[in-house]
């Protein structure tokens, strides 16, 4: 991996104030850094904002992806640390959405000295129900998700194959691709979905040693309020904010309040 330029591997974008504290935004499963499009400009007024795509998503270097390496969340956490190292980031406020909340927990636990604060946006440490713990999903549900990814494969290959094979006499396909956010190769989506929805990071939460903010929404079909409260309870000294927003992606459904909540926490001394 060392011979790869980390910035281009992750399609890293840096915006905002060069003299401000650094906020590193990590997108979740199913999309890419575009997910922060409505929040990043607000944060950029106060902070230096670093955006990136996980390997396999968005504008990342797909040749760096392998099913073996990215079968667990550890690889994604390692990537976050590599981005910090290459850009020389210090005192980072790491914001992880959805599955990246747990990726962020893993990264912070591995190198706590790099990070000033941690923001977990609609996090879930474990999506599967387990005894008294209500993750919200059964194994059958997740299998169903993996199946629905499969059933979207035929359409994907029809539109993507000419693009991937470099079809010079159909330039409109390239245009279509750049205009389409959150497109993912189903094979990659499968592996990421397994890593995301079958992992259990509950034991990693108590190890978090930096100030942490947990943000949840009033109605989230993926990470329930009960799960948000669990995360809050497991991380000593963490704060919990519940936004009056609906859905799993408040940065899209309620960008202003989401940016405000991150700003207030990240900027506080």
């Amino acid at each position: 991996m060392s011979d790869v330029d980390v910035s281009s591997r992750h399609n890293v974008t840096v915006i905002g104030r060069t003299d401000g504290p650094t906020v590193l935004l990590a997108h979740g499963y199913g999309c890419d850094q575009n997910l922060w499009r409505l929040v990043a400009p607000v944060l950029a007024k106060t902070f230096r904002v670093v955006l990136f795509d996980h390997v396999g998503a968005g504008g990342s270097d797909l040749s760096a992806w392998s099913a073996d390496r990215y079968a667990t969340l550890d690889a994604y956490a390692e990537d976050v640390l590599e981005i910090c190292a290459e850009l020389g980031l210090r005192d980072v406020v790491l914001v992880g959405h959805s599955v990246s909340a747990m990726i962020a927990v893993l990264a912070v636990n591995r190198e706590p000295a790099l990070f000033a604060k941690l923001v977990l946006l609609t996090p879930s440490p474990c999506y599967l129900d387990d005894g008294d713990y209500r993750g919200g999903f059964s194994r059958a549900d997740i299998d169903e998700l993996l199946e629905s990814l499969d059933s979207n494969y035929l359409g994907w290959s029809a539109t993507m194959a000419p693009v991937i094979m470099g079809n010079p006499d159909r330039p409109e396909l390239g245009a279509e691709l750049t205009n389409s956010f959150c497109r993912t190769d189903p094979a990659i989506a499968q592996v990421f979905a397994r890593a995301t929805f079958l992992s259990d990071n509950r034991a990693d939460l108590p190890k978090v040693g930096v100030p942490t903010l947990v943000i949840q929404t009033a109605q989230d079909a993926i990470a329930s309020q009960e799960v948000g409260r669990f995360v809050h309870a497991q991380i000593a000294g963490s704060e919990l904010v519940t936004l009056d927003a609906i859905g799993h992606c408040p940065q899209l459904s309620a960008p202003e309040v989401t940016a405000e909540a991150i700003s207030a926490f990240a900027g506080a001394r």
Partner: peptide
């Protein structure tokens, strides 16, 4: 349920 996860994480955004 599987479709719902797909909707919330992918289609909605």
């Amino acid at each position: 349920v599987g479709g719902r996860i797909y909707y919330e994480t992918h289609i909605g955004p």
